[in-house]
Amino acid sequence: MRMMMKARMDTQMSNQVTKDGAMPKSLKSAIEQLNPEAAYFTPEGGRTMFLVFDMEDSSQLPSIADPFFQEMGAEVTFEPVMNLDDLQRGLAALQ
């Protein structure tokens, strides 16, 4: 299922990770693990990232979110999302 993860990182913890030079490694690890179709970064409420990726099973939630909790004190949310093709298939099924 296509999911969008939002990770809003704690400013103080992510400042330390950035100063220590570990931020690029942490982000690279997440990108390699999830192979997202899209990755966006914004200063919304602090350092925030959005990743859109395919989640095969809900049992993946802990391994995906925990590094953000532990390394950056992030608030992490997950939302199922659709692209236009998915929406069109869903609407066609209503017919």
Rank of each mutant, 00 (worst) to 15 (best):
M1F: 08
R2H: 04
R2M: 09
K6N: 09
A7W: 01
D10Q: 07
D10N: 15
D10W: 04
Q12C: 06
M13P: 07
M13W: 07
S14P: 03
Q16M: 10
V17S: 05
V17Q: 02
V17W: 00
K19W: 09
G21C: 05
A22L: 12
P24K: 03
P24M: 02
K25L: 13
K25V: 08
K25E: 13
K25A: 14
K28F: 04
A30W: 01
I31K: 05
I31W: 07
E32G: 02
E32D: 15
E32F: 06
L34I: 05
N35M: 11
E37R: 15
Y40F: 14
Y40K: 08
F41A: 06
P43E: 06
E44P: 01
E44M: 13
G45P: 07
G46A: 06
G46H: 03
T48L: 05
F50K: 00
F53T: 00
D54H: 08
D54N: 08
M55W: 07
M55N: 02
E56S: 12
D57A: 14
D57C: 08
Q60G: 07
Q60A: 15
L61W: 11
L61T: 07
L61S: 03
S63T: 12
S63Y: 12
D66P: 01
F68E: 01
Q70L: 13
E71R: 11
G73A: 07
G73W: 05
A74W: 00
E75I: 13
V76D: 02
P80H: 04
P80E: 09
V81T: 10
D85G: 00
D86I: 10
D86Q: 10
Q88A: 11
Q88C: 03
R89V: 03
G90C: 08
G90K: 11
Q95N: 15
Q95M: 12
